[in-house]
Amino acid sequence: MEFWRVPFDADEIDVTQGEVHILEDRCKGCGYCIEYCPRQVLEFSSKFNQKGYHPPAVRKPDNCVNCHYCEIICPEFAIYSVETT
């Protein structure tokens, strides 16, 4: 889901910075947030959560633009983002 062209006004737009929060023990490891994050912020972590799944971990925190897609696609209420300023 990467952008394939740069918008004309890209340099005039203030891109928000987001911070991802993961409620690890709610995660069932479907990987939807990782697969469909438009900025590749996330990856599977190598550790196990309480239920024995690999929750996501933040790989590239600076990439997050607080689009909330991970929050909305997650079937487990296990991930969300907030805006940082």
Partner: peptide
């Protein structure tokens, strides 16, 4: 009541979440 009963990869949780939003 969380975690819910839906399996890994089941989409019901996402639909439910969209409903709450």
């Amino acid at each position: 009541r969380i975690p819910h009963i839906w399996c890994q990869g089941c989409g019901i949780g996402t639909v439910f979440s969209a409903c709450l939003i």
